[in-house]
Design a protein around this nucleic acid. Sequence first.
DNA 1: ACATTATAGTTAGCTGGCTAACTAAGTCAA
DNA 2: TTGACTTAGTTAGCCAGCTAACTATAATGT
Lengths: 174, 174
Amino acid sequence: MSLIMLHLRDLPTLETLNKFAARYPQADVTAISSFLHLLRVATDLSIALDSCLSQHGLLQGRWWVLILLMREDNNTAMPSSLAEKAGVTRATMTGLIDGLAQSGLVERVFAQDDRRSIQIRLTEAGQAKLDEVMPDYYQRLRECMQGLDEASRQQLNVILDAINAGIPAFSKKS
Amino acid sequence: MSLIMLHLRDLPTLETLNKFAARYPQADVTAISSFLHLLRVATDLSIALDSCLSQHGLLQGRWWVLILLMREDNNTAMPSSLAEKAGVTRATMTGLIDGLAQSGLVERVFAQDDRRSIQIRLTEAGQAKLDEVMPDYYQRLRECMQGLDEASRQQLNVILDAINAGIPAFSKKS
DNA sequence: ACATTATAGTTAGCTGGCTAACTAAGTCAA
DNA sequence: TTGACTTAGTTAGCCAGCTAACTATAATGT
């Protein structure tokens, strides 16, 4: 589950935005500004998450697979289901599982009823790794978000939903 | 300027969050929820942006370089300056410039005073490409954000600043 | 003046995504 | 029942980032 997005460092000044808006009348200056700000903060959060995980020898993709497995009742899921939930291709999931299996954090269990499919199971070592990483991750996240009260968090969710609703208009094919 | 981040598709339900919070008492459920929501929407926005740019034969990295050049007074900048503003390494910028130069959208101009450094200049074709892409990008972005009034955009900026202030606590090395 | 250090850019090789093509196994309809 | 289709997983090869090492040039200090 890696996402490619802008690695913005240098957000435009209001002056720059107005210069561009003068040439391109379609520009909605506050929309652009909020959009870039959102991508920028999300980028930095993602980098911070990488930094946290790397201190435990994990990367986002593999970490997320472990979490998805722990969510399951018997800590078991099919690769195709994991791929879908993680938002990666099945090919990518094969690679993630290879890495996790090599580290002993998950294991492949062959199904007897359908010999095409296999089950991926979180091992004890995998659970132990999560028990090491998650408290650190949750503690850091708690501290990161502590400047935001419940009302602001709620507001943020409402705003994000509104933006999300507009995304089809952004990515339309025409 | 590509950023690696979660490609989250399957956000946890409240039930799942509570299950994790029961095992890991450090968990701050609303913090986790808002954090993942933010990464998810940013991810989808980035994918939408990719989709828009690809219809004009561009990728985020190269597109951003063109914009940075257009921001400059004489449409000219040094590779190292571009790298810093784009948030990529100089090595990556070399590759971006190679691609843009091959497409004729920028050109390398050798400096006479310091023979180590070169200047990158936006060509007429590069400006024409921006004049093709930016109206489409701005129009799509306007439509995407049209569900958000000015007050909400302002709120979003305040919230993002608050989160941004907490990022050092997230990525601290200890 | 000349050895050291710093700076600008490039190259080589790694990584973790991706798509497309493939194997193997199950399903279904003529 | 057998040929076409679907599904699960893997493999091969591409791409755009990255780091580390390199060349060339400039600046600095003794």
